[in-house]
């Protein structure tokens, strides 16, 4: 598989949210606006790329029976780094993402890529894979966040698009599930067209 394909698979064909249905908790929980979705997506991308790098570097020195706990420690460290750095330099985003930053640890996507890809491939491929998957995740979250923000509040990235309040339900919890449901269906159709 070429590196380009390795990179681009995360957007449509193997999109972590729309196709693999991984990392749904943050995908639903923080996407009340496009900005929050993008912020969460980029934070996850950082953790994904960093842990992919470290895992691919140390993979030969880790006995296979303790590989999962070791990977968890690596991932948890990077998550804590994101947590601290975001609180220091982006306090507003830190407040709105809240609990979901420490929960990047249990995002099946991060652990899944470390175990399924980074522990079997060289560092460069692991970086490309992490970037592709991470940005695919960010893409999905921004899309869902944008959809909910436009329909629910009539805004996009905080810019007012039309007057009025919009359909409040899309900003609330039910709108997250329903919005994601239709985006998954849409992605299924697009994927079929591509094949």
């Amino acid at each position: 598989m070429g590196q380009l394909q390795n990179f681009s698979k995360g957007f449509i064909r193997e999109n972590p949210v729309f196709v693999l249905l991984l990392g749904l908790c943050p995908a639903l929980g923080v996407t009340t606006s496009a900005f929050n979705g993008l912020g969460m997506g980029l934070a996850t991308t950082f953790v994904l790329v960093s842990s992919n790098i470290v895992v691919s570097l140390i993979k030969n020195y880790i006995p296979s029976k303790v590989r999962i706990p070791s990977f968890i420690v690596v991932i948890a460290s990077f998550v804590t780094i994101v947590d601290l750095v975001m609180e220091a330099y982006m306090p507003a985003l830190f407040d709105s993402l809240g609990l979901f930053i420490p929960l990047i640890v249990v995002n099946c996507l991060v652990m899944g890529r470390a175990e399924a890809f980074a522990s079997k491939n060289n560092t460069f491929s692991a970086i490309v894979d992490g970037l592709g998957m991470g940005l695919g995740f960010a893409f999905a979250l921004t899309l869902l966040g944008g959809l909910r923000e436009i329909l629910g509040a009539g805004e996009f990235f905080g810019l007012s698009l039309f007057a009025g309040d919009g359909m409040l339900v899309f900003v609330l919890a039910p709108g997250a599930f329903i919005g994601l449901g239709y985006l998954v269906a849409l992605n299924n159709i697009v994927k079929k067209k591509l094949d």
Binding site: L21, V169, L172, A173, P174, G175, A176, F177, I178, L180, G181, Y182, V184, A185, L186, N188, I189
Partner: peptide, 21 residues
């Protein structure tokens, strides 16, 4: 067809969430 599986399940979850509100 397009809604089978996960999409339909998510929409149902949304309706449940609405009920729980």
């Amino acid at each position: 067809k397009g809604m089978r599986g996960a999409p339909a399940a998510l929409v149902v979850a949304g309706i449940l969430a609405l009920a729980f509100m």
